[in-house]
Design a protein around this nucleic acid. Structure first.
Length: 982
DNA sequence: TTCCGTCCTGCCAATCTCG
DNA sequence: CGAGATTGGCAGGACGGAA
């Protein structure tokens, strides 16, 4: 356990003298009153320094100290605040003090505090019209309000307002109270959120407790010790020795005396002293058993702020719990972030502790969160899981999908996007409609680590005993010190980066060789992971499972190194990739095998036939597995079957895998020109391979009957080729063993671009410009108004689009996309053809049991044809499958779990046209979510209100099934009036 | 300006541990 | 066996670096 981040706090305390006090500090107006304008969400949103004094030094300081992003461990390096020489903090301190004394902590001024201290807390947005609307029930109620009867716009407003007001205004005391635990009655008290000491110090590393800011300056303004200053100009008090000065300059000079002196920090609360005796006496009285030092200090500060209405519960060394009005808030003891859930906090805590490390299996990055790695690895695998339901194109990231749908299909995903919670989390909209499919992960899901696992493999060692970090790429164990140096942007003592990059990997492949000779630790860990030392599992944890887990790309560094081991000596990145790719394929085989076995049992949910003109007809079976949440239990049979398939995974890749393999595109990422040159030789090799592959494909086109077999071959080839193709980008470092990121890291900015407002340092001018723009936006008084206007505009847009499309539709009908989706809840239904389907075609009626995508407006590209051919290999037959009806139950149904293919509502009327370009407004009708005829359009029970068809509460608000559903005869088989046909 | 990788956090499901 | 803990995936926006 290293020394805490002493210097961080010290730095913040003393630099004060480095700069003259901002004149604004003395101005009573440096901050808005609590009742003044709302402030932007402190979280995520650009801190909106909307106050009139936005340009004030004091504010500048505030922003200097805290970036808009409250906590960015990995970027400490670039953060001015992390710089030991930072002089911003002191000013901040003064500002806070002054604010503390002069006025209630106005939100605007509390940016510092809100971000540093409780920024995580729910409230993140600026004060909205709903300022006190949550008072009654707290967050849950807020969410309910947002999800429940509130209209979309209301919801948006609510959401927007959720985060804005907290901490920010005295008028929002109630909300603030919930968040910060401060009693509302103290809105005007000096104990504003901004007063929290956290604003004065950086996230201390691990224990020992971070030295809080210097005694005076850093002491919580609310603390009694500070009361004497009420009548004094706070900025004229030395925070270290409490001496008073008649002028700021005098104080500045005085502070220099403290500079350089090594502050003494209380081991328990982090309080800083300049006299050792004082420290000793303080520590003697400070130590209180039961709570971790960090926690204690935090508690002291927080409780000091407003003990009333809050109850602090004991936590552990990593966190403490605070109950505010019945709402439990978890605080990280290190960085003081607040979390609504313990799991979130614990997940976050690893950023500090690096108790676990998640190395990328393809490069040498190590992540603090498994998810980071997972997302990162997608880059390596090229897996595309986000599939557009309109064109079936798959994308690697949600962002890409969204962009695609916006640009190609004219859909604004924001209309259907899920809601973000005030605390930055995600909460699915009750009526959310997914316009995409999330395909199952190609690689098998990683097994949950057992506690024992972690202990055994040495990854759970506490930071203090941080074992030499096994750096897969380095092939050697690094000591803590090395680790620090490797943590990108990490403050040497805070170790809060959430990603570690082994920059030295980038240089050359030869350096990577060590990878191949795994460190002893790696070996050990590997052994551990694979087997014997693993704790005894339940019986059901059969050897098969063990094997499976061992195979699985693991979460541990060992496993990562193992993956690289595959790549073995001197192997270049692409080889490593290839190796992985193989394992990946194996994994996919496993999965597909398992899927296949499921399909064998249950059969596909439905089949899809994609017809592109007359040139290609592709059929695809959609398994229920990726649509349903509750998969069938793991029967022994399944396990055995899976095991068998696993054993044969190297040779059986065809039949089972075919079911879903085509979902994934192995298109390589675009290569940079330079990279292309680099891999010229590689391309030459590829050329040859490609020619062969093309020949084979051509043959396949002629011989569809053999496509099953050939597809597997193609897959293999693709895998190989694509790996190579990806090499340029992923393998640029690949030659050195890393992907592009390392290369990015290796490029050091030639110059630094510092934000004049917050002193943030950006590496590029564009980044700086963007950053500054955020400042401007956030400071613009129009910002909020604009934000508020967004929702109505959106609604208008939908309406406009709808009307416009209605006009254009007639002329463009031929280009309509014909889509029919038919799903069955039961085999009987399948027989009968009951279904929900979307049919926007104009041709023959959709084939029952098929989904057809007919686009006559364009011919498929060769690649599409190829893909389609692959898909066409899917078994055409209909197979049994389980019911999904439960998902669709209007009453009590969980809309959040609504699959893309909603339940097999009966087809109440005929296929609907979905005009191209598709528009969201038309979708409900096309999806049969809307009653096509009648005087007024009514949504079917599951129609999300977001389409503006129904301003009333959605069907899932406890309403009875829609009449159309209850009594389909109402429509008497009408195919829908032209009125509603788009 | 755009693309892309990373970060973040509420929510949830799957899994594991423990009594 | 069930309750609670742990783990990790997902959503979707924020952000910054690089092209």
């Amino acid at each position: 356990m290293g020394d805490g981040p002493k210097n961080a706090k010290i730095t913040l305390s003393f630099p004060l003298s480095a700069a003259p006090l901002p004149t604004s500090l003395t101005s009573p107006n440096h901050c808005h009153g609590s009742s003044s304008s709302s402030s932007p969400s402190p979280h995520r949103r650009r801190p909106s320094s909307k106050s009139s004094d936005k340009g004030s030094l004091w504010k500048l300081d505030a922003t200097m100290d805290v970036k808009h992003r409250p906590f960015k461990p990995p970027r400490h390096d670039s953060s001015p605040s992390s710089s030991p020489s930072s002089s911003s903090s002191p000013m901040t301190v003064h500002a806070l003090i002054r604010k503390d004394i002069k006025s209630p902590p106005p939100l605007k001024c509390s940016k510092l505090s809100s971000e540093t201290q409780f920024h995580r807390s729910p409230p993140r947005s600026s004060t909205g019209p709903f300022g006190g609307c949550y008072a009654r029930d707290g967050w849950d109620d807020r969410h309910r309000a947002a999800n429940g009867t509130a209209s979309p716009s209301q919801t948006a407003q609510i959401l927007f307002s959720l985060g804005t007001s907290a901490y920010q205004r005295g008028g929002d005391a109630e909300r603030r109270e919930k968040i910060t635990g401060r009693p509302s009655g103290k809105a005007g008290s000096p104990h504003g959120p901004s007063l929290h000491p956290p604003t004065l110090h950086l996230p201390p590393p691990l224990p020992p407790p971070p030295p809080p800011p210097s005694e005076g300056l850093t002491a919580p303004p609310h603390s009694s010790s500070y009361s004497p200053t009420d009548s004094l100009k706070p900025e004229l008090i030395c925070g270290v020795c409490h001496r008073l000065f008649s002028s700021a300059s005098s104080l500045t000079v005085h502070m220099r005396l403290h500079r350089g002196s090594r502050a003494l920090c209380c081991r328990y609360c982090g309080k800083v002293f300049i006299h050792s005796k004082r420290l000793q006496s303080h520590e003697a009285s400070c130590r209180v058993p039961g709570l971790p030092s960090n926690t204690r200090s935090l508690l002291a500060r927080i409780q000091g702020d407003d003990a009333a209405g809050t109850e602090v519960l004991a936590g552990d060394e990593n966190h403490f719990v605070k109950v505010v009005d019945g709402n439990v808030i978890y605080f990280c003891s290190v960085c003081e972030r607040s979390y609504m859930t313990l799991s979130s906090l614990k997940r976050h805590s690893n950023v500090h502790s690096w108790r676990r490390k998640y190395p990328c299996h393809y490069c040498d990055k190590v992540f603090a969160l498994a998810e980071y790695r997972t997302k990162h690895e997608v880059w390596h695998t090229g897996e595309r899981r986000y599939q557009c339901i309109f064109c079936w194109d798959a994308f690697a990231t949600y962002y890409n999908l969204k962009t695609h749908q916006k640009t190609i299909h004219g859909i604004n995903p924001s209309l259907i996007s899920s809601e973000k919670t005030a605390n930055g989390g995600y909460k699915q909209k009750a009526n959310a409609l997914k316009l995409y499919r999330l395909l199952p992960m190609r690689s098998q899901k990683r097994p949950y680590k057992t506690y024992s696992d972690s202990l055994h493999n040495g990854l759970l060692l506490p930071p203090t005993e941080t074992p030499p970090l096994s750096l897969p790429g380095l092939g050697c164990a690094l000591g803590p010190g090395d680790l620090q140096s490797l943590i990108s942007g990490a403050h040497p003592q805070t170790v809060s980066s959430s990603v570690i990059v082994h920059s030295n990997q980038v240089t050359s492949g030869s350096e990577k060789s060590p990878v191949n000779s795994p460190s002893p630790e790696n070996s050990d860990s590997q052994t551990v992971v694979k087997g014997p030392s693993r704790p005894i599992k339940k019986q059901r944890d059969s050897i098969d499972n063990h094997r499976k887990r061992s195979r699985d790309s693991s979460d541990t560094a060992e496993e990562g190194s193992r993956g690289r081991q595959d790549g073995e000596t001197g192997r270049l990145f692409h080889k490593s990739r290839k190796s992985h790719s193989k394992s990946d394929i194996s994994n996919s085989k496993q999965l597909s095998a398992s899927v296949g076995s499921q399909v064998k049992e249950a059969g596909p949910l439905c089949q899809i036939t994609v017809r592109i003109g007359e040139e290609a007809i592709v059929k695809r079976s959609i398994s229920e597995t990726d649509l349903r949440r509750d998969k069938s239990g793991d029967s022994e049979e399944e396990e055995e079957e899976e095991d068998l398939e696993v054993r044969e995974h190297e040779s059986d890749h065809d039949t089972e895998d075919n079911l879903w393999r085509p979902y994934y595109s192995y298109k390589p990422k675009r290569k940079a020109q330079a990279h292309l040159q680099r891999v010229k030789s590689w391309q030459r090799k590829l050329k040859y391979k490609r020619s062969i592959r093309l020949k084979r494909r051509a043959e396949r086109l002629k011989n569809l009957s053999n496509k099953e077999t050939e597809k597997s071959q193609d897959e293999e080839e693709d895998a190989t080729t694509e790996e190579a193709e990806k090499l340029p980008k992923g393998g640029q470092g690949g030659l050195g063993g890393s992907h592009s990121s390392p290369s990015r890291l290796s490029r050091r900015a030639l110059s630094r671009h510092t934000c004049p407002q917050c002193h943030k340092v950006c590496k590029t001018s564009s980044a700086l410009n963007r950053h500054i723009r955020r400042h401007e936006l956030s400071s613009s008084p129009e910002r909020e108004r604009e934000d508020k206007d967004t929702e109505p505009k959106t609604a208008e847009t939908v309406a406009d689009i709808l009307s416009r499309d209605l006009e254009t539709e007639k002329a463009e009908l031929p280009s309509a996309l014909s889509v029919s989706v038919i799903s069955y809840s039961t085999p009987e239904e399948r027989q009968g053809g009951s279904s929900l389907f979307l049919h926007a075609g104009y041709e023959e009626p959709p084939l029952v049991q098929d989904l057809r995508v007919q686009s006559l407006s364009r011919s498929p590209s060769p690649n599409e044809q190829e893909e389609n051919l692959l898909m066409s290999s899917y078994p055409p037959g209909t197979l049994p499958f389980g019911p999904l009806g439960k998902v669709m139950v209007p009453n009590g149904g969980d809309l959040a779990k609504l699959p893309f293919y909603p339940d097999p509502y009966q087809l109440l009327y005929g296929p609907q046209f979905l005009a191209y370009p598709y528009n969201l407004a038309a979708l409900p009708v096309a999806l049969n979510m809307m009653a096509p005829g009648g005087d007024k359009v009514e949504p079917l029970p599951f129609l999300p209100a977001i389409f503006n068809y129904a301003a009333t509460a959605g069907p899932y608000m406890g309403a009875a099934p829609h009449p159309l559903v209850a009594n389909p005869s109402l429509y008497s088989g009408s195919s829908g009036s032209s009125k509603n046909v788009l």
